[in-house]
Design a binder for these strands. Structure first.
Lengths: 161, 161
DNA sequence: GTTGTTTCTTGACTGGTTCAAGAATGGGGG
DNA sequence: CCCCCATTCTTGAACCAGTCAAGAAACAAC
């Protein structure tokens, strides 16, 4: 993918066999802008362009885009569903136990990391999802108590792995 | 840990500074028996021993045990919360996209897999959680349609990684 | 045994997500 | 360029895992 090129969303939708609708384009724009947005954030962003879209349209679009592989849905334990546009690289996520902030991290080992499980139990594996848990710089600095901007996600003491 | 030894749950609770109550012991027994049980399954299992426990007691116990590190909570995207007793090894999970079945897999690479992120972004990382997604033998055999025993977790075509 | 704190019971409630019926819209064929 | 039909969106209600709150019961130290 050319660096910092704006994706041709209408074409991507057509390639996936989906209709090109304004809600879907607005949702894709919102995902591109927001990074790890929950559904509510997406709804708000979409309504800046299209004030009249229903929340249901956003839910439907997110589901359709996810099923088509244009978006990716993640849901760290204790969090609501979050979405991101699916870019070509296989990156993973780093989640703060205290404030829930999420950042992307590249694969630890080359391009395809722990993809091969030690024993596949007969499963046909198509994806390895990795979530690193810890404390973000802000939360680990003021140990314990800096006011979380989000609902603390099952706050617990950090455990050794 | 001695192989196939029954854990001394009362002692484990005391060591964690928790009171030894019958609901908690029953929850631990249920987790040991069930493996990746959702809350409803735990409630049913617990009520075989203690018919009168409230669902709230189970929720509280699961939260407390998780916070104390005696249990582990996982929540694959699209699924409800599931719990397992926390054993010493650092294993991961293999989830069927179609029927939601979950099995354990050992670490891919030695004992600590992709634990070290390529860039920690200043986070203090304490755990790496790996979920492999795919189709279980049953679901991949009858391609598409064998009646899922559970709610299909956001069924989508298998994607390449 | 007594006492004080933690935990459990009961019952109501929340909020993210889904369901359902009908209106609107996108896009290929005429 | 317009028509038509399947797909998609709007509206409004419902669902359900999980949480909150107040009082009763149980655990554990003395």
């Amino acid at each position: 993918m050319p660096p910092s090129a704006v994706p041709d969303f209408p074409q991507l939708l057509r390639d996936a066999g989906l209709r090109v609708t304004r809600p879907r384009l607005a949702v894709l724009d919102a995902l591109l802008e927001l990074a790890h947005a929950d559904t509510e954030s997406v709804i708000h962003a979409v309504r800046r362009d299209l004030p009249e879209v229903s929340h249901q349209a956003v839910y439907d679009s997110l589901r359709t885009l996810t099923a088509a592989g244009l978006a990716r849905r993640i849901q760290p334990t204790g969090s609501v569903a979050r979405y991101e546009v699916r870019v070509g690289d296989n990156h993973h996520h780093l989640v703060c136990r205290s404030c829930g902030a999420i950042v992307d991290v590249d694969c630890a080992v080359g391009r395809v990391p722990c993809l091969t499980a030690a024993d596949d139990h007969g499963y046909v594996i198509d994806e390895a999802e990795v979530i690193y848990w810890g404390l973000c710089p802000t939360c680990s600095a003021g140990s314990e108590g800096p006011p979380p901007s989000r609902t603390p996600t099952e706050t617990g003491e950090a455990r050794r792995v």
